[in-house]
Amino acid sequence: MNEQEPFCPNESRRSFLKKSTVITAVALTPAAAINAANNHWDEHIAAAIENVSLSVEINGTRHTMDIDPRTSLLDLLRENLHLTGTKKGCDYGQCGACTVHVNGERVLSCLTLAATTDGSKVTTIEGLANGDELHPMQAAFIKHDGFQCGYCTPGQIMSAVACIREGHASSRDQIREYMSGNICRCGAYPNIVDAIEEVQKGGQKV
């Protein structure tokens, strides 16, 4: 029995661009355009023109660049800017490892297209400390052993800071509830709650 894979929605993207290019080209110089299409130059042209410009402030530094519109904020940080402190855990918005602050609010950077952050201020784990001086939440995570492998940790810390700023850290139960978007497979949850509770009660500015 034979089976063809089901229809792939991505397939239509290039076909559409190709058609558009050809239609535009027909009005100009048909032969050259058809030649271009056959040689897939249209792909190269499309790739160049479909980039979008982005100007975003990340950890206090403004970055202006042209990016592939498919780039998520997470991949922009990790692959383009080498800010690998922000982690890719699932890429589907289900684990919280990629949590960063955009204009002061916690967001999942894997579900945020980088292009939508144009003009925004992004803070990542690399931007949380004040030089060599750790942010109180970072220090509390070390003190209370709020991690083991460390991979979910940047996302936990960015969420934890936002959790206090949002006013969602008034009790241990509330902390547990509002930190449940960040999975820790090592199971450091009680320590994470201890760390957040201490920072919240300490009244330091977060």
């Binding site: 949380l128 991690f147 940790t153």
Partner: peptide, 21 residues
């Protein structure tokens, strides 16, 4: 004792497999 590599982990400086440049 707190972890000797704790600071690397809470600042995002610890490098995992996919993160080498």
């Amino acid at each position: 004792l707190s972890r000797v590599d704790g600071k690397l982990k809470v600042t995002g400086a610890a490098k995992y497999a996919a993160e080498y440049i």
